[in-house]
Design a protein around this nucleic acid. Sequence first.
DNA 1: TAACCGATTAGCT
DNA 2: GCTAATCGGTTAA
Length: 183
Amino acid sequence: MTPALDLAGDPVDAARDLIGWTLLVDGVGGPIVETEAYRHDDPASHAFPGPTARNAVMFGPPGRLYVYLSYGIHWCVNITCGPEGVGAGVLIRALEPVHGVDVMRGRRGRDGLRELTTGPGRVGQALGAGPALGGTVADLRPPDRPREVVATARVGISKAVDHPWRFLDPGSPYVSRGPRPPA
DNA sequence: TAACCGATTAGCT
DNA sequence: GCTAATCGGTTAA
């Protein structure tokens, strides 16, 4: 597996390649173990209806952070990808708490490592994601070790559920819930 | 200015 | 494992 990360290419490929990469926000973060791809033509994508004030970041250069509020309470972190102007991104659903664990614990108010970053909303909170992060450049570091990657159906959306554009590392205990990966 | 909707989480059985 | 509740932003008129 070439460690090359092509954020400007197909979001689906980017989502798969991002598994294992370490995402840092202000020095806090860890290896990404679960992602979801959102193409511009995906009905479930925020960018689908077209450019708006909210998703403007997704139509900008790839490699930026796109932060949005879900259910009015959960801040979720995405990495913009695909060609500039297209409007695509990769949702960071889960990662392994490695850097700044104490900080994450403080923000989350939980001690259990398993409860820090296992879920989109939790990742956002643990990383201190907020409106200020939107549009900033993603701090990514190459993976130290190759990761096993499995593709499954996405979760938590109401449209285009059948697309297997959810990627995760089955070997990591820090993946969020969802359908068990087929053997 | 008002109404709607959501890429979830937490909690209880 | 399953069901219900949450809050704020975004969109539309």
